[in-house]
Design a protein around this nucleic acid. Structure first.
Lengths: 147, 147
DNA sequence: TGGAAACATGATAACCACATGACCTTATGG
DNA sequence: CCATAAGGTCATGTGGTTATCATGTTTCCA
């Protein structure tokens, strides 16, 4: 499963690095550290700056930095500009055989999964990604549903 | 979220029609019923025949038919030839910052969601899709089946 | 004030998977 | 053997993602 585009992955990786750094980092440094094309990353980070996730400073000694504490940035915010999560959630079959009104028997459980994904991206923060797994509590928090 | 490719949707739609039909159906008929290109659907169904989901008969009076009862065909079987579910499940960030051994704090909960998706495709059957929501417990409305 | 450093941005190309079409081959039944 | 329908091959289209190029704009500093 792809789930996230390359661009979104770049965005996540970059924000995690920034979460650990605390001071301004230039695109060139980030790009080299992550092994991704600099010009492209530049555009990606610009978008994140525009959407309020990052702060950017131009000119000499410029660079990027998180606009807020890492724990206050949900992954959804990082990824949203590059994905369409709010897309028309049609049935997994597509339109013809299954609509909202006349739904297939699997409709609801599929919807539930979609909800879980979105909730994950809303509840998980950049800070979580930046931390090692040691930090993470017993698995009652998010996975807590029967399967 | 896309989640499934167009091809997979074609496959699901076609199998659902076949689930309701019980006798052989030609590609041409299926293609027209679903409003999809015949040649393409032909290829898709061939793959499903090869993978054992469908049975095909060539020549006059040929066509396609489910190889097993609809309730014994998990969606995974229909969709697997066209997606890579078993893909290397790396972290949603990609490789560099988060591996299996040194995982981010969100690693496990993300994995859990991946598991849920796969489980859904394993547990839900073509039969479920073919049935209306009337089969569903918490539905107050009993609609007949028709598409 | 000029130049270098760094982000910002628009245009364009490269790439790629998905999708489609045209056409030929093979099997089947009558 | 002939019509039919699946199976396969080759070539092409097509849209979206990713990457590159060129240039503009802001800022710092000497």
């Amino acid at each position: 499963m792809p789930v996230l585009s390359q661009t979104s992955e770049y965005a996540l990786q970059a924000t995690v690095v920034l979460a650990r750094q605390s001071d301004m980092v230039e695109v060139g440094v980030l790009a080299e550290a992550l092994g991704v094309p600099k010009n492209y990353l530049s555009k990606t980070l610009s978008q994140l700056a525009r959407s309020g996730v990052l702060e950017s400073v131009r000119g000499k000694h410029g660079g990027f930095r998180l606009a807020r504490p890492a724990d206050e940035i949900p992954l959804l915010a990082v990824v949203e500009p590059f994905e369409r999560f709010t897309e028309n959630r049609r049935c997994l079959m597509g339109r013809p055989l299954c609509s909202e009104e006349d739904a297939c028997a699997a409709h609801e459980s599929w919807r539930a999964i979609g909800g879980k994904i979105v909730r994950f991206f809303r509840q998980t923060t950049v800070g979580d990604l930046a931390r090692g797994r040691s930090r993470w509590p017993n698995s009652t928090e998010l996975g807590g549903e029967k399967g």
